[in-house]
């Protein structure tokens, strides 16, 4: 225990030797690595806070990067990593903030005693752990961002629009997979209930390719809508897609398919009992 205290004291001494100087050098080094993409003042504040927290932690006898004493330092690092991840910095640039302190401390070794070297090594191990912690946090923040974006995309890409009283449409854009189809299916069915529509049009103009799985998903959605008492029309089938569907031997059975959304709307309106009359008086 005494040895540990001793080690901490030495680390502390190492850092305290020209404290202001060290911090300033550290900041310079980090800002050079970040190529001016973050303002000097902000960096100043961040790193000074880190430095103070580190000194405080060592004063409290902290030696272990996952220990109690370093919790405040870790909180600061977490915030830093998250900010860097959001601002689009690379992992190396993020970890640099921690590792640069090691570089700055190197000159202290020259002419230092054996104890100084030992203290430096111990500190460097601590900084290594903290650096890894930074990268881990950075990665986690990135993953959270990606997951959030995927969710948003799922939400954005499946609007249900009301075309007419009793007619709704789902314009599908992008590749259909199981997760998306599930969302589309639920949204469409809920929209049928909410709007009391008996006609639904699924427009697949924006779907780049249809394979057996996508067709299966579409069929399921249509059968579910039928169970609820609504009729579905599939529209926007491009020539190549029609060829693929036939080549794959997919049977759409008695499900009505139309080449364009306009045709599907016309059919849906007719089924909904809406009659269209042109201003000239002739029927369409």
């Amino acid at each position: 225990m005494v040895a540990k205290q001793d080690g901490s004291a030495r680390l502390l001494k190492l850092l305290s030797t020209g404290e202001q100087d060290l911090a300033a050098q550290w900041i310079t080094q980090v800002s050079a690595g970040l190529a001016g993409r973050i303002s000097r003042a902000e960096l100043d504040r961040e790193l000074n806070e880190l430095f103070t927290a580190l000194v405080e932690a060592l004063r409290a006898g902290g030696q272990d990067a996952h220990g109690e004493e370093l919790s405040e330092l870790r909180a600061l690092l977490t915030e830093l990593s998250r900010n860097r991840a959001r601002q689009g910095f690379t992992p190396s640039e993020t970890a640099l903030s921690v590792f640069a302190l090691k570089h700055v401390l190197e000159p202290v070794l020259e002419g230092g005693t054996k104890d100084d070297v030992l203290a430096y090594l111990r500190l460097s191990r601590l900084l290594d752990d903290l650096g890894l912690f930074t990268i881990e946090t950075y990665t986690r923040a990135r993953e959270e961002i990606i997951a959030a974006q995927a969710d948003q995309l799922l939400e954005l890409s499946t609007p249900v629009v009301k075309l007419w009283d009793g007619v709704i449409a789902v314009p599908l854009v992008g590749t259909l997979d199981s997760a998306r189809t599930q969302v589309v299916m639920e949204k469409l069915l809920q929209a049928l209930v909410d709007t009391g529509s008996e006609q639904a049009i699924i427009d697949i103009t924006g779907v780049p390719a249809v394979d057996t799985q996508v067709a299966q998903h579409l069929l399921k959605t249509i059968v579910a809508a039928r169970l609820m008492g609504a009729e579905c029309t599939v529209s926007g089938i491009r020539p190549q897609i029609a060829q693929t569907i036939v080549a794959l031997g997919i049977e759409f059975g008695d499900i009505v398919t139309k080449a364009s959304l306009a045709d599907a709307l016309q059919l849906a309106l007719k089924k909904a009992g809406v009659e269209m009359i042109s201003p000239a008086g002739g029927r369409r």
């Binding site: 299916m185 639920e186 069915l189 809920q190 049928l192 209930v193 009391g196 529509s197 008996e198 399921k220 059968v223 579910a224 809508a225 039928r226 169970l227 609820m228 008492g229 609504a230």
Partner: peptide
């Protein structure tokens, strides 16, 4: 059969029951 909820419809489809001979409507009125 009227007033089937979306979740129920999805379940039936997943179970492979398409209720071929049954007519359906959104609500009682329809």
């Amino acid at each position: 059969v009227v007033g089937m909820r979306p979740a129920v419809a999805i379940t039936l489809v997943e179970l492979g029951l398409s209720l071929g001979g049954v007519r359906t409507a959104l609500d009682l009125e329809k």
